[in-house]
Amino acid sequence: MKVWSIAFNTFRENLRDKLLYNLLIFALLMIGSSLILMRLTLGEFHRLILDIGLGSINFFGVLIAIFIGIGLVSKEIEKKTIYTIISKPVARFQFLLGKYLGLSVTLLINTAIMTAGLLAVLYLQEVPVHGVLFKALGMIMVEFMVITAVALLFSTFSSATLSAIFTLAVYVIGHLTPDLKAFGQKMDGLSQTVLEGMYYVLPNLERFNLKGHVTHQLDVPVSDLLIITAYGITYTAFLLLLASVIFQRRDFR
C-alpha cells in the first residue's frame, strides 16, 4: 500500500512537471510531421509514417524515462524531501519501488497517448494496421522499463547530471552490443575480455527493437515476445535490486 502511495505521488509529480508536456508535444509534432515529409518522398509512404512514428515514440519515451528517471531519487535527496519519507515507517526499498512504479505508469500513459497520435495519422493516410505494430509498441514499453531502472540506479548514487550522461551512454551502447561482441572477436587478450564483458553486462536493447518487423510487415511469434519480455523484466529486477542495495547503505546528509 505504501509503495502505491509513493508511486501515485510520483505519478502526480510527473503530471505537474512541465518537461513531460514539452516532450509529449514534440513527440506528437514529430509523428504528425510524417504527413509533411511524405510529400518529399517517392513511394513507400506507409513505411515512412510507421518508421517516423515508432522512432518518435521510442526516442521521446526514452528521453522522458531518462530525464525524469534521473531526478526520481537525486532530486528528492537534493531537495531534502526524502527526509520526511525515510523517517516515516517506510523501508528504503519501498520508496525506490514506489518511485519506479510511478514513472512506469507515467510512461505507460505517455506511450498510449503517442500511440493514439500515430494511429490517428495512420488512419488519415489509410495505412493498414497490423498486429505486429502493437507487439513492437509493447517491446518499446519493455525497453522503457529497463531504461528507467538504469536511470534510477544511477540516480541513487550520483548527481542528476552525471546520471543523465551515464544513462544516455548505456542507452546508446545498449543498442550497439552486437557490434561490441563482433569488435571484441577481432581483438585479443585484455581488450577482448573487456568488450565481451561489456557485451554480457550491458542490456542488449536491440532485442527490443521490432521496428523493422513492422515496416516490413513480418510477424513475430508470441514465444519470442515472451522471451524478450522475460529478459527485460529480469534485467530490470536485477537493476532495482542493485539500486536498493546501494540506496540502503546511503547516508542522507
Binding site: 505521488n9 502526480r12 509529480e13 505537474r16 512537471d17 531537495k79 531534502k80 524531501t81 527526509y83 520526511t84 523517517s87
Partner: peptide, 14 residues
C-alpha cells in the same frame, strides 16, 4: 514518532 526536519523542503507541487 513525528519528525520535522530542519528548514523543511516539501513536495511543492502538492
Amino acid at each position: 514518532v513525528g519528525f520535522l526536519p530542519e528548514s523543511p523542503y516539501f513536495y511543492d507541487y502538492l
